[in-house]
């Protein structure tokens, strides 16, 4: 298994750096263009989630693992967390409140998504198969 770790300042201007790193690694791993674009968007949304909802964390970490046919991305922060069960399961486009859209997008674009959130931090785990 190949593993990459990137620690980023918890600032909105560095989210693009996480996207660029993830897409570069996905390209080397052999994903097609459409799947690379899915990964780019999903990683961006996971990092947005940190910047918007874990403001008390100074930095956050992105870990990428490549194994067999699967790329797994972990986006981990040490913020206060949120109640995953309270996120809306579906988005009503005509009554969009701004809440939950990012996670909904990740779940749609990636093959698997899990969110672990406690009062000590949140980890979003995303998997994409080639």
């Amino acid at each position: 298994m190949d593993q990459f770790k990137l620690t980023l300042p918890n600032k909105r201007e560095y989210v693009i750096s996480a996207r660029l790193a993830a897409t570069s690694i996905a390209s080397v791993f052999g994903f097609d263009i459409e799947k690379i674009e899915d990964i780019r968007i999903a990683v961006g949304e996971a990092c947005n989630n940190v910047v918007l909802h874990s403001k008390e964390a100074d930095s956050f970490e992105m870990v990428i693992e490549l194994k067999d046919e699967t790329m797994t991305v972990y986006v981990c922060d040490t913020g206060k967390g949120f109640e995953v069960d309270k996120m809306p399961p579906v988005i009503d486009p005509h009554d969009y409140s701004g809440s939950g859209l990012g996670l909904f997008i990740i779940e749609t674009l990636m093959d698997e998504m899990k969110v672990h959130s406690t009062d000590e931090g949140t980890t979003i785990i995303m998997k994409k198969r080639r």
Binding site: P93, I105, L109
Partner: peptide
């Protein structure tokens, strides 16, 4: 890629 995001979120109806 931009159209896809509107489509999967249902926002192409908005």
């Amino acid at each position: 890629s931009v159209s896809k995001l509107f489509r999967i979120t249902g926002l192409d109806k908005v």
